[in-house]
Amino acid sequence: MIGDFRFRNSKLSRKILIIIFEIMLITYAVLILYPLMNMILSSFKTTREIFKNPYALPETWNFNNYVEVWGRGGFGGYFFNSFILTFFSIGAVLLFGSMASFGIARYKYKLAIPVYLIFLAGIMLPLKAAIIPLFLLVRQMNLMDTRLALILIFTAMSLPSTVFILAGFMRTIPGDFEDAARIDGCNDFGIYRRIIMPLTTPSIALVTIYNAVPVWNDFFFPLVFLQSDKLKPLPLGMSVFFGQYQISWHLLFASLSIAILPMLALYMFMSKYFIRGMTAGAIK
């Protein structure tokens, strides 16, 4: 494209500028990658080795750290819990969110805009600030220390942005298909399921990533609502683990690697989706 920063054919002053920029970018890339690499290397060492040779490769590759963290450290269970919470929350969000979007975007009625605005208000209301009434509510519903309480709250947390993105998209679908299907005797649910949803698939993929990452990473709500260790998801389990194993740095690094590496692996295969998904709310 015109005006690109190409090194060749540039004037000297511009060449110098490009070199300075490249140095900045490379420095920042190293600043991101090195701490991750060091974390992975440290996770195979002994605590003594981490302090003595922090930059070196491990003397022996100690896979036992992982076995210990996964088993005795309880990370196997934490991982499972995170998965269950994310799976059911996102399932509910996609179902109820797409249905609500359909009900808002594909019908003409007076209340459509107020209903839409109620969903939108949720985008700007920080749910953390509502923790006192939520706490009292969950106690009253007898849902303290259950997964269901968290799934409901995560669903509520994710619905507003989901409706914002999906309703916006569904509005752009022309009505012709719908009319044709209606003539063929398709009822409203059939139109939602067979016509609109298949056309909405690309947006569904974005919404899934946009919501699943924060739910998978959430710490605050599990902290408030869960007491049993056997229900805790990864971030909360990690804070328990860090309290118990303060001086066993090799295990701490192994636990961090267990929490971070799966996300990194997924990202390597689907970085485009992740980048588009995570920025979906901020970029049109």
Partner: peptide, 25 residues
């Protein structure tokens, strides 16, 4: 009725867990 069917579940969750807690606060 169809509109209610589509909108209600999501709307209820948002009302109960986001909007009502705002006013309760």
């Amino acid at each position: 009725l169809w509109i209610l069917f589509f909108v209600l579940p999501g709307l209820l969750i948002v009302l109960v867990f986001i909007i009502v807690p705002l006013f309760m606060s």
